[in-house]
């Protein structure tokens, strides 16, 4: 049981960065950014390749830069080239497949054997014992979350929020939406890449297909967190929801993995259903209310 909790917390903290990225793109900027899947693998590939060369810490920073670059391509396509935002993400995502193979030396996977990772280096410091992975991931994620919370109240951060909240007020508020979308997507994707980078070094491997469905899982975590935390009410809660949702999701995941209540292959379908239901909930509620009203009126008129 302790192992389940530990795994759930560690993975939850690490994957929380993906949810944080989706919070920035999907909630703050109101853009469905589908660069996520490829960007996650990009971060993983860059970080593992760098660790293979003996530079695990540098690998994390390179992953951040690579993610920001991927985000800027998506932003460029949609703000300068007139590509619809969803398509822009898909186009970048597709292109990243080749880039990712290239980063891993034209191989579909890369493994770290004896090489040091940020996790082994941290463990060697002797902090936290068997909890050291959790402590390191948690600390990095916490710093990112606090950074986002701070950033969103700065001049640029407020401008990015206004861009997503009310497109009509933007140009009348001296905000250049091209710039705010560019910065927003760069930050979001650098978090996604960082998450991939950490997972890669934690699992000591990178695989070209490990990003499949990450965007949906990230959204599910975000929505679960928002529901639990009543997160749309305030910025702080919404950012905290990224982490809370992820821990809950990973807990369920670890539980199923351990107990085999469901075949583990079912998890992606379950995730998809959770996301679809959560996003559809307001519409379904409205429809249900209307049906009740119609039935009631009909009953009265008879």
């Amino acid at each position: 049981m302790l192992f389940i909790i530990q795994t759930a917390l560690t993975l939850g903290c690490t994957y929380a960065l993906v949810a944080l990225a989706l919070f920035l793109s999907y909630r703050v900027l109101d853009i469905a950014d589908l660069t996520t899947d490829g960007c996650f693998v990009l971060g993983m590939a860059v970080s593992v390749t760098s660790a293979l060369a003996g530079h695990p810490v540098l690998g994390l920073f390179l992953a951040l830069i690579a993610g920001a670059a991927a985000g800027s391509v998506t932003a460029f396509l949609q703000t300068r080239m007139g590509v619809p935002s969803i398509l822009a993400g898909i186009v970048t995502n597709t292109g990243l497949y080749t880039i990712n193979l290239m980063v891993m030396g034209w191989s579909s996977n890369a493994s770290l054997l004896k090489q040091a990772t940020v996790y082994t280096m941290f463990k060697d410091l002797g902090i936290g014992g068997s909890w050291s992975q959790l402590i390191l991931s948690g600390a990095i994620t916490l710093v990112c979350m606090l950074g986002v919370r701070w950033f969103l109240t700065t001049r640029l951060g407020l401008s990015i929020r206004a861009t997503g909240d009310n497109r009509e007020m933007v140009s009348a508020s001296s905000i250049n939406p091209r710039f705010t979308i560019l910065i927003g997507l760069m930050i979001a994707n650098s978090f996604t890449a960082l998450s991939g980078a950490l997972i890669g070094q934690m699992q000591k491997s990178a695989d070209i297909n490990s990003g499949t469905g990450i965007v949906v899982i990230g959204l599910a975590c975000l929505i679960i967190g928002e529901t639990v935390m009543n997160g749309r009410k305030s910025l702080t809660r919404n950012i905290a929801a990224c982490l809370i949702g992820n821990i809950i999701y990973r807990f369920i995941y670890a539980l199923i993995l351990q107990t085999r209540i469901l075949p583990i292959e079912c998890l992606k379908l379950m995730t998809a259903v959770i996301v679809a239901l959560a996003i559809a909930a307001p519409t379904m509620k409205d429809n249900a209310a209307l049906m009740v009203r119609i039935r009631k009126e009909k009953g009265e008129s008879c």
Partner: peptide, 14 residues
């Protein structure tokens, strides 16, 4: 002229 999901203070700050 205003961002609905931002607070009064945040709108003024912007």
């Amino acid at each position: 002229g205003t961002a609905p999901h931002m607070t009064i203070e945040e709108n003024l700050a912007l």
